[in-house]
Design a binder for these strands. Structure first.
Length: 491
DNA sequence: GAGTTTGAAACT
DNA sequence: CAGTTTCAAACTC
C-alpha cells in the first residue's frame, strides 16, 4: 500500500518511536483506504507520540481517518469515502448530525474517515476523546459491511470540471448504484448525480434521467437539425404529443432509453433547472461550441429564436434587447467572416510559406505587418463555402501556422491582425456592405478581412458591454447595438 | 431559518 | 432479501 510520506521520513519517525512499537501498529482501518503509516499510528499511540508524528510529518493533528486521498500524491481519487460534489471531492464538510453521534455512515465526516471539525453536530463522538467508541463503531460497521468505508465510485477518477463544464465521467460507476425513485437521478439526493457520474447497470433507480446521452447539450436529429436540450424540453412542455425526432439508441441495453423517452417524460421545471444547472448549459441555452457549430445551424438557432419560431426555455439575457434583424445581420457577418477567413487563410498559407524562408528572425514585425499581401484573387460568391462552412475562423487561420511559427513574421493570423491595430483606422466604407450584401463578388483582400473582422469584433464587444449593462437600460440602447457600417443600417 | 422531501443507512 | 424505520442532506418556501 502506498505511503503518504517519503520513506525516509517514515523511517525516521519509526526510529524515534521504536521499531517494535511502530510495527505493532498494524493497519486497523485499511478498509478506510488509508496508508498504514498514517492510519495506524495515531490510533494506537499516545498523545505524545501522535504529536511527535505530526511534528515530524508536518501535519496537523487530524484523525487517522481524515487523510483524504485527494491530499495524497500518488493515489488516485476516489479512494476514501470522500464526498464528491459536482465532480469535485469535498475534503471535509461540516455535518449536522443529531441522533447518530456522528458514529454512523449517516455522518459524512465519519463516513469519509474524518473527525468532526467545527461541525454543528450534537452529541458528537467522532473525535479524539471518543476514539475507542469511534473505533468500535467503525468495526461494527465493517463487520456488517466490509466495504462500508471503501469508495463508492469506481472505474475511473472522478473528473473535476474545473472549467465549470460538468462533463460526466462515463467510465466511473457507483459500485452499489443508486435507488432513486422520485428525482429521476437529477438531484443531489442521487449519489451518482452528486458524484457527477452516469447511472449504471448497478443502479436500481426508477425513471432515471441520469444516463448516457443526457449529458449532451445538443441533439442532432435525423433531419440533421440542431436541437438544444432546452428546445426539446420546451417541446415536451408545450405539447404532450411532441416527438423528438431521434433514432438514437443508447448502447446500454439494460436501459433502453432514448432522448424521446428521456424528454417525453413529465420533467418538472425544477428538474429542468437542476439539469441545466448541473450540466452547465450556457445562459443562452445553446450548449455548443462555436468552432464546431455549423454556420447554418447558428443562423437557424439564432434567427429562429429571435423570430420566435423556437420557444426556447432559456432565453438570452439579450433576447429582449436585440432586434431580430440584428441577429440576422450578425449571422450574415459570421458567414462572411468564415468565408473570408478560410479564403485568406489558404492564400496566406501559400504565399507566406514561400516568403517566410526569406525573412530573418529579427525582422521588424511592425514593418512586416504593413506589408501588403500578395493575394488579390477573385472569389465568386457561389464558390465560397457558404453555409456549410464551419465557423472556425481562427482554426482556418491556424492552418497557416504550420510552417510559419518557426521564424515567420506572422506566427498566426492573429498576430497579423494585431499588427494591423497599429495601422491607421480605416473607415467602415460601403465595401463591407458590398461584401455583406453581395458576398464576395470582388477581390477579397486583406483590407476586407480586416474590415470584416473588426466589424465583428466591435459587434461582439457591444454585445458583451450590453449584457453587462443590461440592468441599466439607459447605459446602452438596444438601437445602438450591432450598428452596422454606414449605409448598412436597416430602415 | 423552518419545514419538507428524499434516498442511503440501519434495522427487523 | 425485502420491507420498514431512522437519519441527515438536499431542497423548498
Amino acid at each position: 500500500m502506498t505511503s503518504f510520506f517519503p520513506p525516509e521520513t517514515v523511517e525516521s519517525v519509526k526510529g524515534e518511536l521504536g521499531k517494535s512499537d511502530f510495527t505493532q501498529r498494524k493497519l486497523i482501518f485499511t478498509e478506510f483506504g488509508l496508508s498504514p503509516v498514517v492510519s495506524a499510528s495515531p490510533l494506537h499511540t499516545s498523545p505524545q507520540e501522535r504529536l511527535l508524528l505530526q511534528t515530524k510529518l508536518h501535519v496537523l493533528p487530524r484523525s487517522p481517518l481524515s487523510f483524504k486521498k485527494s491530499e495524497s500524491p500518488g493515489i488516485s481519487l476516489p479512494q476514501a469515502r470522500t464526498k464528491i460534489i459536482n465532480g469535485t471531492p469535498k475534503s471535509h464538510r461540516q455535518c449536522h448530525c443529531k441522533q447518530s453521534k456522528c458514529l454512523k455512515l449517516y455522518c459524512e465526516c465519519f463516513a469519509s474517515g474524518s473527525y468532526c471539525d467545527e461541525c454543528s453536530c450534537a452529541n458528537c463522538h467522532n473525535n479524539v476523546e471518543n476514539e475507542d467508541v469511534r473505533r468500535e463503531a467503525a468495526e461494527c460497521i465493517l463487520e456488517r459491511n466490509p466495504n462500508a468505508f471503501k469508495p463508492k465510485i469506481t472505474g475511473s477518477p472522478c473528473t473535476p470540471p474545473d472549467d465549470g463544464d460538468a462533463a460526466k465521467d462515463v467510465l466511473a460507476k457507483h459500485i452499489k448504484g443508486c435507488h432513486c425513485k422520485r428525482t429521476g437521478c437529477l438531484k443531489k439526493y442521487c449519489e451518482c448525480f452528486q458524484a457527477n457520474i452516469l447511472c449504471s447497470e448497478n443502479c436500481k433507480c426508477v425513471s432515471c434521467k441520469n444516463m448516457e446521452g443526457s449529458e449532451l447539450g445538443m441533439v442532432v436529429t435525423s433531419e440533421n437539425h440542431c436541437k438544444t436540450k432546452a428546445y426539446i424540453q420546451q417541446e415536451n412542455a408545450n405539447s404532450s404529443s411532441a416527438v423528438v425526432s431521434s433514432s438514437h439508441i443508447f448502447p446500454q441495453e439494460s436501459r433502453k432509453r432514448t432522448f424521446r423517452e428521456l424528454f417525453d417524460s413529465n420533467m418538472r421545471d425544477t428538474e429542468i433547472r437542476e439539469f441545466t444547472k448541473h450540466h452547465a448549459v450556457d445562459p443562452v441555452g445553446v450548449h455548443v461550441s462555436i468552432p464546431t457549430l455549423r454556420a447554418d445551424c447558428v443562423c437557424q438557432i439564432a434567427s429562429s429564436a429571435a423570430l420566435g419560431s423556437l420557444k426556447l426555455t432559456y432565453r438570452s439575457l439579450l433576447a429582449d434587447a436585440i432586434h431580430p434583424l440584428d441577429t440576422t445581420e450578425l449571422c450574415s457577418l459570421l458567414v462572411v467572416v468564415s468565408d473570408a477567413a478560410k479564403f485568406l487563410a489558404d492564400e496566406h498559407c501559400k504565399a507566406q510559406i514561400k516568403e517566410v524562408k526569406e525573412y530573418q528572425m529579427a525582422c521588424d514585425l511592425e514593418k512586416d505587418c504593413k506589408k501588403e499581401p500578395d493575394v488579390h484573387q477573385v472569389v465568386p460568391h457561389n464558390q465560397l463555402p457558404g453555409s456549410q462552412t464551419d465557423i472556425t475562423v481562427m482554426d482556418n487561420s491556424r492552418s497557416c501556422d504550420i510552417g510559419m511559427q518557426d521564424g515567420g513574421p506572422f506566427s498566426s493570423e492573429g498576430d497579423y491582425l494585431m499588427c494591423d491595430e497599429k495601422d491607421k483606422l480605416f473607415t467602415r466604407s460601403a465595401s463591407l456592405d458590398q461584401n455583406l450584401n453581395h458576398g464576395c463578388n470582388e477581390n477579397f483582400t486583406e483590407e476586407h478581412e480586416r474590415l470584416v473582422l473588426t466589424c465583428l469584433r466591435d459587434c461582439l464587444g457591444k454585445l458583451i458591454a450590453f449584457g453587462t449593462m443590461k440592468d441599466d437600460p439607459e447605459a446602452i440602447r438596444p438601437e445602438a447595438m450591432l450598428s452596422p457600417p454606414s449605409g448598412h443600417r436597416r430602415p
